[in-house]
């Protein structure tokens, strides 16, 4: 065991892990964080806390993670390389660990163009790959990125994202391998709607034995409505929502679409459970945290193991 992370313990014990996410509020509203977290208590093993997601300013991931930790849950601190340079990122990692946060996710982040500060500078002093390397070196070699010795190394369980649906497809397995070589411990994938394409990606992953070198959590999202499905299909870069999902959503009346979205999500989880190499699920119920319990229950992911 590399860390004290509950997520690591669950995965190492061979359980299917379940994570979900919580987007911090756009204001100093700590109770909103607590509310969202309350929906997930006892339902998931860890909660991703997004870092200025979609390049919109929100309560910092570190602050919201701390609140979640205080509530007795396990946050996954998301960190994007878009907003901070390597000094700030390392400082936050040490600070997070000092506050009891032991799991994190290294990301590049959406481009500022998509957010509410398109005029801001994109930092990208390091990329997500280099961030993984940096955190691993802080943990295992006890050194800062600049090379100096570090006292009180942050023992982070290191995660990263993978998108099996982006192009070029043939590079997607190699890119995962690169992240593994950089030191990643677990992966959360982009939302899977195109299960067939995900299975093809996993074939490539297994062919190189990568599923044995890191834990892969399959990302799923329940569509709240036909509009949401269409939006993800057309407007979110790197999302693959096949036509049959859209058709299925549009085949039911508007008031039933949310239920249909949840059904699709549960069916997807059940199908993905059979895919060799899937170590768990990352359920991204965006602004719909209250649905996660039902999804987990019906997908047979409850109760959560006690470690």
């Amino acid at each position: 065991m590399k860390t004290e992370s509950k997520l690591e313990k669950i995965l190492a014990a061979g359980h299917l892990a379940v994570t979900s996410e919580c987007g911090p509020p756009r204001g100093a509203l700590p109770d909103q964080v607590r509310e969202k977290a309350a929906y997930l208590k006892g339902v998931v093993d860890a909660i991703n806390v997004t870092d200025n997601q979609t390049a919109m300013v929100r309560m910092s991931s570190l602050a919201a993670s701390t609140i979640i930790k205080q509530e007795g849950l396990n946050p996954v601190l998301q960190v994007v390389s878009r907003d901070r340079n390597r000094l700030a990122i390392q400082a936050d990692i040490i600070g997070a660990y000092a506050l009891g946060i032991d799991t994190m996710l290294c990301l590049s982040g959406d481009h500022t163009k998509f957010g509410d500060h398109p005029m801001a500078m994109n930092v990208h002093d390091i990329d997500s790959m280099q961030m993984i390397q940096m955190v691993r070196d802080m943990r295992d070699k006890e050194i800062f990125q600049g090379g100096a010795k570090l006292k009180g190394a942050p023992k982070m369980f290191i995660g990263a994202a993978a998108n099996p649906f982006a192009d070029p497809f043939e590079l997607r397995v190699l890119r995962l391998e690169k992240k593994i070589n950089a030191g990643v411990d677990f992966i959360q994938t982009q939302c899977i709607f195109n299960v067939e394409k995900f299975e093809r990606w996993m074939e490539g992953v297994r062919a190189r034995g990568l599923h044995k070198k890191c834990y892969i959590l399959a990302g799923v999202t329940p569509c709240k409505s036909l509009g949401a499905a269409r939006y993800m299909s057309n407007r979110v870069p790197g999302m693959d929502v096949p036509k049959d999902i859209i058709e299925r959503m549009s085949s039911v009346p508007k008031e039933k679409q949310a239920d249909e979205g949840v059904d699709i999500c549960i069916e997807t989880i059940k199908r993905l459970k059979k895919v060799e190499g899937v170590a768990g699920f990352h359920i991204m119920a965006i602004e719909w945290e209250e649905k996660v319990e039902e999804i987990c229950e019906r997908a047979g992911l409850l109760p959560r193991p006690q470690i």
Binding site: N122, H124, S128, M129, Q130, D167, P168, R175
Partner: peptide, 9 residues
């Protein structure tokens, strides 16, 4: 994004 290790998602 000045990514130096491959394409983003």
């Amino acid at each position: 994004k000045q990514l130096m290790n491959g394409p983003c998602g």
